Computed example of a mutant assay.
Amino acid sequence: MSNSLEGKVAVVTGGSTGIGLGIAKRFVSEGATVVITGRRRAELDAAVAEIGEKASSVQADVSVLSDLDALYAEVSKRHGRIDVLVANAGGGSLAKLGEITEEHFDRTFAINVKGVLFTVQKALPLMKQGGSIIVTGSTTSIMGTEAFSVYSGTKAAIRNFVRSWILDLKGSGIRVNVLSPGPIDTPALRGVADQAPGLLEHFSAVVPLGRIGDPDETGKVAVFLASDASSFVNGAELFVDGGLAQV
């Protein structure tokens, strides 16, 4: 432990499970105070107990703007600022072209695109010079994936958000980067795998490192992007994918 985030206040949306939980745990291990969000109270309570005493939670759905307002009001009340924001909440499910419904499209874009946009925009008044925003992307932003076009489209959209936002934030001293995981062993991936038997084995076969990743491995990279070690990294997309998107 290097305590590279000592004294920093971080907000991690979708922090109760999977990648978000892995990031939150790593942040606390590096000295940060972390506020996590999620839609389910029981999972939030369990996550806070797992992360430790420097963690707290606010129940919120990032696709509901009033929930985001309540989140940031609470963060302001508790801590007065945000040093690191991880816009991580998201999700998706399989649907082939020809089978995509309006409800499927609206739900996925509401969380992954609308939710990310307003998670970031509404946090800005609490962020100052030296702040770091990390948006969770995906290898699907640059790869074709069968039956996953809607989810993939959302991740391509937020990748361009970040390219544009660094221009909007010029002079603010706030950095924005994308952390794009490949296949990571999370409840979300296993939920998709339930719809596609053999998916996890397939990923292990095609990832050059020969395995899927662990949430803690995304957490380690998030610490880098959150810390002063990446002080001149801005607008980048850093893949945590064992090489999958690079071949």
Score class of each variant (00 low, 15 high):
residue 121 Q to P: 02
residue 151 Y to P: 03
residue 63 S to H: 09
residue 208 P to M: 10
residue 233 V to Q: 00
residue 53 E to H: 10
residue 30 E to F: 14
residue 80 G to W: 08
residue 12 V to F: 08
residue 64 V to E: 15
residue 92 G to S: 07
residue 37 T to D: 13
residue 119 T to L: 04
residue 142 I to N: 12
residue 60 A to L: 11
residue 38 G to P: 11
residue 210 G to I: 01
residue 27 F to H: 14
residue 199 L to H: 06
residue 20 G to T: 12
residue 173 G to P: 02
residue 12 V to I: 13
residue 185 D to V: 09
residue 176 V to G: 01
residue 170 K to I: 05
residue 219 G to C: 02
residue 80 G to V: 04
residue 48 V to A: 13
residue 196 A to V: 13
residue 140 T to C: 08
residue 13 T to Y: 10
residue 105 F to C: 01
residue 34 V to T: 10
residue 118 F to L: 14
residue 93 S to A: 12
residue 48 V to H: 11
residue 227 S to M: 08
residue 18 G to Y: 07
residue 42 A to Q: 14
residue 36 I to N: 11
residue 217 E to A: 04
residue 4 S to D: 09
residue 153 G to C: 02
residue 29 S to H: 13
residue 49 A to H: 07
residue 230 S to W: 03
residue 202 H to N: 09
residue 222 A to E: 09
residue 206 V to F: 10
residue 211 R to F: 12
residue 181 P to F: 04
residue 106 D to W: 05
residue 144 G to T: 01
residue 40 R to Y: 10
residue 107 R to P: 00
residue 70 A to K: 12
residue 181 P to D: 01
residue 238 L to C: 03
residue 136 T to M: 02
residue 185 D to C: 08
residue 51 I to P: 11
residue 107 R to D: 04
residue 186 T to V: 06
residue 52 G to Y: 07
residue 3 N to S: 13
residue 23 I to L: 12
residue 98 G to D: 04
residue 214 D to L: 14
residue 189 L to I: 02
residue 27 F to C: 13
residue 11 V to R: 05
residue 220 K to F: 03
residue 203 F to Q: 02
residue 5 L to Y: 12
residue 94 L to N: 01
residue 201 E to W: 10
residue 35 V to L: 15
residue 41 R to P: 06
residue 59 Q to E: 15
residue 61 D to M: 12
residue 238 L to A: 03
residue 103 E to M: 00
residue 78 R to M: 11
residue 141 S to H: 09
residue 204 S to D: 12
residue 30 E to T: 12
residue 213 G to T: 05
residue 149 S to F: 02
residue 139 T to M: 15
residue 183 P to W: 06
residue 172 S to G: 01
residue 55 A to E: 05
residue 161 F to M: 15
residue 132 S to C: 07
residue 82 I to H: 06
residue 197 P to Y: 09
residue 100 I to P: 00
residue 108 T to V: 12
residue 198 G to N: 11
residue 59 Q to F: 05
residue 88 N to A: 05
residue 28 V to M: 14
residue 75 V to G: 08
residue 187 P to Y: 12
residue 6 E to Q: 15
residue 43 E to L: 14
residue 40 R to P: 07
residue 146 E to N: 01
residue 227 S to T: 04
residue 193 A to K: 05
residue 225 L to I: 06
residue 76 S to V: 01
residue 211 R to W: 11
residue 204 S to A: 15
residue 33 T to E: 14
residue 161 F to C: 05
residue 199 L to Y: 08
residue 110 A to P: 03
residue 226 A to N: 01
residue 119 T to Y: 11
residue 123 A to D: 02
residue 192 V to K: 13
